[in-house]
Design a protein around this nucleic acid. Structure first.
Length: 111
DNA sequence: ACATTGACGCCCA
DNA sequence: GTGGGCGCCAATG
């Protein structure tokens, strides 16, 4: 039988490209929002990347925590996921300072 | 259609 | 190094 229509965001082709690119970021490395956008062919769309990540379901297998901003900082407020993100990164060997910063020169992923 | 809102980024003080 | 201002762009109200 047909299931009820749920208010679920439609994944566009561009969204899929982003998911795929994000999935290819290895553990222990990080990328920036802008970098990710550029890698999938959409320069200047860093905010779009942030929007996609924000809408990810909680149980997603995507490594959303490997995405930080161009200043090398975790963009999420600590109380709203930022702390969790820092823990996940440290767990895979990324050095994160107590105030949520990562040295991009050391940990940025380059495809 | 217009205004506001962001998991952003670059420039400059 | 840090913060504020402004630009950018899609999503929302």
């Amino acid at each position: 039988m047909a299931s009820q229509a749920q208010p679920q965001p439609v994944a566009t082709a561009s969204d899929i490209r982003l998911y795929t690119m994000l999935a290819s970021v290895p553990a222990g490395r990080v990328v920036t929002y802008g970098q990710l956008a550029e890698l999938v062919g959409f320069p200047r769309r860093a905010r779009w990347v942030g929007q996609i990540l924000r809408n990810l379901p909680d149980g997603s297998s995507l490594p959303w925590h490997r995405v930080i901003n161009a200043r090398g900082q975790i963009s999420l407020p600590p109380e709203d996921g930022g702390q969790r993100q820092a823990e996940l990164l440290r767990a895979e060997g990324v050095m994160v300072t107590p105030d949520g910063r990562v040295n991009l020169a050391d940990f940025r992923w380059r495809p």
